[in-house]
Structures are given as C-alpha cells and as structure tokens.
Design a protein around this nucleic acid. Structure first.
Length: 840
RNA sequence: GCCGAAGUGGUGGAAUGGCAUACACGACAGACUUAAAAUCUGUUGCCCGUAAGGGCUUGCGGGUUCGAGUCCCGCCUUCGGCACCA
C-alpha cells in the first residue's frame, strides 16, 4: 500500500493517499524542529495550552482528540498570524488510578505510568499536532516534583500550609482523605463510593485566605460565564454578621452567623450542629441521654444521607436557654443535623418565619413562629403580606393580621414589624442598624463567610509527592531544607493503602526514620503524600522553562510566556484544577516568584463526544478509538471531522458515517489542487478574486469566533465554487486555499504548498489579508416583500436609493399583481437586503 | 429548591432583528461500469394539488416590530452545576 510518490509525479486523477502524505510531513516537521517554541523570538508570543492528560491505561479516544485538535488548529492559526506559539504537552502522572491499577496487576505504578505515557505519546503524535515535545514534562519525576515540593515549602513558610485535627471527608474505598471539591453528590469524585467523615490530623492549605481575590479576579478573565459562575458559587461569599447570644445559666456565649440580622426579633430558638463544642456543656441532665443518642446517630450518617438524601428535620432539645439580645426573651437551644459544623460558626439563630429550613423545623417540633418582616408592595407601598398568610383567621388571633399563621417562610424583602424600636424600618436599613447597635456592646459585628473551605492537602496513599517536612520531638514540624529536595518517593514492593489513616510510606522504616534538619536529633518524615492536583497546579509555569534544575523556572522566561493566552480543556475541572491552579499562581505572585497573578487569560471548554448518548469511556464500552479512523481516512480527515461535528463547546454524538463526507471533501480538495497546481496561471480574474476574498473574510471571522464547524462548511462551499468555476484556477486562489486549510489539515496543506512549488513550509507563510474592494458588488439582489413576506427578487445597482427601488417595484408586473391594488400604508427599505411594502 | 445552557427537516447542524432549513449525513433517481465499489449529476422540511400554484413550519402560549428562530413576558421538556451554606 505504501507507494513512494514524489509530488512532481502527481498527475490528473491523483489519489489522496493520506497516510503516506501525513507520515512524510510528520517526519519532516520533526527533523526540522518545526514546533519548537523559541524563547527570544522577535515575534510576539502566544501560549496555547491543553489541559495535560492523565495517562490512563485506556488510551485516548476520539472524545479526547476534540480538545487537542481544537487547540492545535488555534495554535497553527496563531502561528500563521505571526505569533511565536508555545504549544506544549506533558503528563499529569501522579494519582490514584495508576496506583490502583498497579495494585491490581502487580506492576509498579512508575512502570505502568511509563508504559501509558509511551502509548499516549504515540497516539498524540499521530494527531499531527504542533506540540513542542522538547518541553515534555512528567509530574511524577523527581526533576519535576522536586519543585512541587519546593512550592509546598513556600506555602509552609508563608503560613498557608498547616496541620489540623478535624473531621474530613474520607473515601472508604480509596482509603484516603478527600478535599471538599472531590466530593460529588456525597460520593468520591474518583470512584463514587459514599464519603464518610473521619477525624484526622493532616495537612491543609489556607485557600480561604485567597477567597476574596479568587472571587474578584474572576472578572479579569475571558472565561466562559458558566465556569466563572461555578467558581463564584463554590467560593460562596456571604455577607452577614456574627451575633453572640448569652446563656446566662452557664455564663457561656453562643456565636452565630446570619445574613439576616434584621430578623433578630423573630429568632425564637437556636440550633447547634451536633458536633458543636458547647453541646456537652449546655445539655441538662434530663436531656443528656437524648442528646448523646442523637449526636451518635447524626455523626454516623454518611455525608450523602445527612446532607443530600434525607432533608426531613430531626433534632433534640438540649434543655438550655439563651437570651435573645434584642427581645430579651429566653429561647430554647436545640441541636440538629441541618446545621453544619463547618460552615459559619456551627450554630444558628433560628427565625422560622423567614427561613424555610427553620420554618420546617419549627413546624416539626411546634416551636413558636414570630413574623417580623411584612412584605411591602414596592409600587404601592401597601402591605402585601396577606398573600403569605392563610386566608382564614386562626383561633388565637381572630382577625388580627399579625397573628395570622404563616403557611410558609417569607424570605423576601419588606419592612420590620414586631421588632420594637426597629419596627417600620426596611430590611436593608435594619440589617445595618441592628448590627451597629449590638456592636456597641460587643455583641455583634459585620463579617463575611465563605462556602469555600481550606484545602485538605494530604493523601494517605503511595503514588504522590511526599510532603517535604519532618516531625521532630524537640523542634516540632520542620521543613526539609531546600538543598535536600527532592524528598524521593521510595521505590518499594508494597504500596497498598493501609486504611488506618496512615499512608503506606509509614511502614517503610528507611523512609520514615531520619534526622531533624534543625537539631540533628532523630526525627520522623511526614508520610502523607500530596493530592493528585498538586502537580497540575503549576505545570503551566514549568513549560516556560521545563529543564531548569536550579529553580522551578527562570523568572524572565515565565514572565515572558505566561499567562497562558488560551487554555483548552473539559468543563469537569471548573472548580477543581482551575481553582487550585489560580490559588497557586496567586501565592507564587505574592511570594514574588512570578509577575502575574492569574494563570489563564482565556479559557475554552470543549464539549464532550458521546456515543449512544453517553460520555465515551472504556468502562462503559462505548469508545471510538482514533487509530482505526486514522488508518482508514488519515489524520487530517479525523481532525476535520472533529471540527465539523458541531459547535465546539457543545456535546456531540459520534456519527460513524458523517466522517465519510469530510473525507470526500478532502479528497476533492486534493484532486482539485493537484490537477490545477502544475499549470496555474499567475493572472488573476475578477470573479475568482471576489470568491477568494469573500472566503477569506468568512473563514477568518468564523475562526476568530471559534465557530469551527462553520469554518469547515466555508471550505466546502469554496471548494465547490472553485470546482464549478469555468476558468483555470490562478496561483493566488490555490495558495490561499492551501494556507487557509493549513490549521485544520496541516499535512494536506503542506503537500499542496509543495505542489505549488514552494520549498519552505506553509507555516512560514502568513494568513491572507482581505481586500475590501472585492467584497462589494456592482449589483445586488434584494427581495421585495409584502407585509414581511417574500414575493419577488430583483437585481438592482449597488447603492440604489429607496426611490429607485420603489420605482423598480412599481414596474415589476409580478409584484404588482401580488399587491392586487391594495392600499400601501408604509414601505421599509433595507439597502442591499430588502424592500417591504405594508398594505391594508 | 436555586443557578445556568439548550429545544430548528429523517439525522448532525446553519442563520449581525431582514430570503429559515447553509454545509454535511441519510434516502431516492440518474450517469459511468459486464457488475460492484469509488466517482460524478439531480431531487429531498411538512400539507393540499396530476400540474401550475397555494398554505403551514424553528418546543407551547402571549407580546414588541413593517418584519421574530433571534428581543420581552409566561409555560413545557431535556441536560449540566450547586444543594439543609444560615
């Protein structure tokens, strides 16, 4: 099948031998180092990055290709537009799947990972992308993770890495702690196993210290609105107040967080999370059994049942009372698992009249409900609260509106009632005033709370970066000095997770036992490793200077290439990798290591590829592998199909037959080119110039706006038009076609470029400019409408006036008969488009 | 429950408020062929009609406009995210 065929030998009826063409050009590009990004090039830089893959054993399928094709088309387009493009690739190689796979198959994760990487690399190379392989990196190599550990030490030194004993998310199947972000629907992000809570002393990163900046700086980013919203929601900034309630009987105070201090008069009871530290002290003897029983059962529930599945309200009275700081009333203190220990202060003031959850709870336990906000119709100023009450008056209140029973919590705005001095104030004014008044006696202050929690940064697993600290009985926690990095992950026989809360490294005496860098005494190494996300938090920086062994990267190089101009990947990382990477970048910026504080200026999320409506995955058995398709049609066909399948940001169903159409198009293009190139005249024709400049404008616009599916149809239409053109195709026409198709089908484009007599690469040419002169026509076809309905089409001179057009219409027999002599009420003329007559 | 996205032919989809259904797949018909494949040409939204022609059509119902797939209001459906966050 492999026929050596020189370009010059190609004659009419040429067969498009994609495989042969593609292999030849791939070799040529590699030999010429065509894709190497030059650090000090004169051209402006452009950094186009893919979310680097985790090299799984399953290999890549056509869904993975989609994003990589997209970024490659964009990179090549940018290159043709005069940029020095950095388009690197590497491997996110630490992580659980490799380790689990290793345990199952008895192959060391380093070995399995190396094998997978080799496979991935072959696959990616077959794509013909302009990856700069000289910058390839692997997060699991000591050369790389040395600097991941170095960054950890910076965090530690800045007080952003700390150890804490607290209940964290625990996956019983993966036998490791998890970050909040890794819990999806109450299950482990990796394996879906319901997550439990486990009290552990481990490493945390203080990402909450950056909550405000992570939120505010979202505005600086050219990211999909959806992802910015997801991050904003995840950070969950909430402005409110801390208010302290006295418990006079015990001389204690309970602090709550609320966003509704205006409803304080309506706080008729309090609720503490079952884990709240004051629970035991508050509980009276009579209630102790019930409280303890409830606490045990609440803590025994999985996250899934407690927070997601079962929202019926349960709780127990502690027997204690607190004093409402405004009304002075004694209000009962309950515990209930609808209050979460790790948000706010773990305690709330319950205002059943104006909070849905409190309302439900009060209804379930017959607690008093006092309405303190009356809805006000913003237009009339009238009390509209009747809408929120039952129409019937209830026994105890008679006709008195204030005593009518609420059927649901009223959470809207309005004016205060039943609130002493504050009655009559608006919600907004009362929020400020009440906090300000309580602040005078130190009972409250304004505050901000976040949903975002600090990042649980330790994993009790083997295959990750060892956390570079030692524990010394004398000196406490001591960071490993920079000169001793990397702390090597020991090569061991057994790496099964222990499940005890300790990593397998704890069992390796030679690793654990060390000396304290400070006092020289005996010490123990930290045995937890970093989570999988650690390496990906800064790899985009390392690509700027990937082989530096003296520092994580050269400062000038990183400041030259970064921020990433275009970052392409799946939306599944919206609040994981993308949030973590932003956090690391800000920390390093604060540390003075880099000169920018956002890593990714622009983000694009490609849609996933589905087969039979489901996301492709090997476990579901619905993957389409690129190898067969590349073998049958060639890489350029598959690349083009990945573009043509639909809008790039939308999920697309794989259609095995539609790829034929794309291949037919490339074959036609190839034949057209090979037949026309040898004898293409220099002289240009007006008609072909018009076609050409219109085409370039269209393709450029569509590329710029990321409408790649319509870019492909523009090519199809253009090539059809060229095939139908009676005149011989001139050089400019053919060269433009070759250059424009180069980002999409680079191999075919090189082949055509050569056939046109060029010795240098098509990528050393430049994207064609549009000459506006060719975009205007002497005559234009406009439609004649009656009441907005198209009746006739007429050709008129460019720039004709409304009167001209009206005359043409009045002389048009067909149009006049359609008009049928009806009275013309109005006429509308849109130059170059239409003439609409409104009749009665 | 809250937030967001999307509903257009048999299918994937196209369309700065201005000719709805580009481009492609599929289907049908034809050319070439002994035949098939490949290639090429034509037809192809729905309904009525032999035809000429006419009517209808962008999830549903209203509205704004000379004109709405596109803008506004109210629904329905599907998908994604968050979810007892005080």
């Amino acid at each position: 099948m492999f026929r050596q065929k020189g370009v010059a030998a190609v004659v009419a009826g040429a067969v498009y031998e994609a495989r042969e063409i593609e292999e030849r050009w791939r070799r040529a590009w590699e030999q010429q180092g065509k894709h190497r990004a030059v650090d000090d090039a004169a051209r402006p830089k452009y950094y186009c990055l893919d979310m680097f893959p985790y090299p799984s054993g399953a290999g890549l399928h056509v869904g993975h290709w989609r994003g990589y094709v997209l970024s490659d088309v964009w990179s090549r387009y940018k290159r043709l537009n005069g940029y020095e493009v950095l388009h690197p690739m590497g491997w996110d190689a630490f992580g659980l799947p490799a380790e689990n796979d290793a345990i199952k198959k008895g192959i060391h994760p380093a070995v399995g990972t190396a094998r997978n990487i080799a496979n991935f690399k072959t696959q990616l190379q077959s794509m013909g992308a302009m990856f700069d392989w000289s910058r390839e990196l692997n997060t699991s190599t000591p050369e790389y993770y040395k600097w991941t550990q170095w960054i950890f030490l910076q965090l530690f030194d800045m007080g952003l890495a700390y150890r804490k004993e607290m209940p964290i998310n625990w996956c019983p199947s993966c036998k490791t702690g998890l970050a909040n972000e890794e819990v999806v629907d109450g299950g482990c992000e990796r394996c879906g196993t319901p997550v439990t809570k486990k009290n552990m002393n481990q490493w945390m990163l203080k990402i909450t210290a950056y909550a405000d900046r992570l939120l505010e700086d979202l505005d600086k980013l050219e990211w999909p609105e959806k992802v910015r919203k997801m991050q904003a929601n995840w950070i969950g900034r909430s402005v409110g107040a801390r208010i302290r309630f006295a418990v006079p009987a015990l001389g204690e105070q309970i602090e709550v967080f609320t966003t509704r201090p205006d409803t304080l008069y309506g706080a008729t009871y309090m609720v503490l999370a079952p884990e709240h530290p004051l629970v035991s002290a508050l509980t009276t003897a009579a209630q102790r059994d019930a409280v303890e029983q409830y606490t045990v059962s609440a803590l025994g529930k999985s996250v899934l049942t407690r927070q997601i599945q079962d929202k019926t309200k349960t709780g127990v009275f502690t027997g204690a009372y607190a004093k409402n700081p405004l009304s002075g009333q004694d209000i009962p203190i309950w515990i209930a698992d609808y209050v979460l220990m790790d948000y706010g202060t773990g305690a709330i003031m319950a205002v059943p009249a104006h909070d849905e959850r409190d309302f439900e709870f009060a209804a379930a336990f017959s607690l008093p409900i006092v309405q303190v906000i009356a809805p006000v119709d913003p237009l009339s100023g009238n009390d509209a609260s009747a809408d929120f009450r039952t129409p019937r008056a209830l026994g105890h209140g008679g006709g008195n509106a204030d005593a009518d029973e609420l059927t649901q919590a009223y959470t809207g705005s309005g004016a205060l009632i039943n609130s002493g001095l504050y009655s009559g104030m608006t919600v907004e004014a009362a929020k400020r005033q009440i906090v300000a008044d309580l602040a005078l006696s130190g009972m409250a202050e304004e505050t901000v709370t976040y949903k975002l929690r600090d990042w649980v940064f330790a994993r009790q697993r083997y295959w990750g970066e060892p956390i570079p600290v030692v524990h010394c009985d004398t000196c406490g926690i001591v960071p490993v000095p920079e000169r001793d990095l990397p702390v090597l992950l020991p090569d061991v026989e057994r790496y099964e997770p222990t499940g005890t809360g300790e990593s397998p490294l704890a069992a390796i005496a030679s690793f654990v036992n060390t000396t304290c860098p400070t006092c020289g005494g005996p010490a123990r190494r930290e045995t937890d490793t970093m989570p999988q996300w650690a390496g990906s938090c800064w790899y985009f920086l390392r690509f700027a200077d990937p082989h530096n062994d003296r520092e994580p990267f050269d400062r000038d190089k990183v400041n030259h290439w970064l921020p990433v101009d275009m970052y392409i990947g799946g939306v599944e990382h919206a609040v994981l990798h993308l949030l973590y990477a932003r956090f690391f970048t800000k920390v390093l910026a604060d540390r003075g290591v880099i000169g920018f504080d956002e890593p990714f200026a622009r983000l694009f999320n490609q849609g996933m590829m589905t087969l039979n409506g489901a996301k492709m995955s090997k476990s579901k058995g619905n993957v389409v592998s690129p190898e067969d398709l590349v073998g049958k049609y060639g890489t350029d066909t598959l690349r083009l199909y990945e573009m043509f399948v639909g809008p790039p940001e939308v999920d697309a169903e794989w259609n095995p037959r539609a790829i034929e159409g794309v291949h037919r198009f490339l074959s036609r293009t190839y034949r057209l080119m090979m037949e026309a190139a040898p004898s293409a005249p220099q002289a240009e024709s007006e008609k072909l110039n018009k076609l050409r400049h219109r085409f370039v404008r269209q393709v450029t616009e569509r590329l710029e706006s990321f409408r790649f599916n319509t870019v492909v149809s523009a090519f199809m239409e253009y090539v059809s038009a060229l095939r139908d053109a009676p005149e011989r195709l001139d050089r400019a026409t053919l060269e433009t076609l070759a250059v424009c198709i180069a980002p999409l089908a680079p191999h075919l484009a090189e082949e055509c470029w050569q056939a046109l007599g060029h010795r240098e690469s098509v990528f050393d040419s430049s994207w064609p400019a549009v000459d506006e002169r060719y975009l205007v026509d002497d005559t234009v076809v406009i439609v004649l409408q009656i009441n907005g309905k198209v009746r006739e089409r007429v050709s008129i001179p460019q720039g004709a006036s409304e009167d001209d057009v009206a005359r043409v219409a009045s002389e048009h027999a067909g149009f006049q008969s359609a008009l049928g002599g009806r009275t013309v009420v109005k006429q509308v003329y849109v130059p170059g488009k239409l003439f609409n007559v409104v009749v009665r």
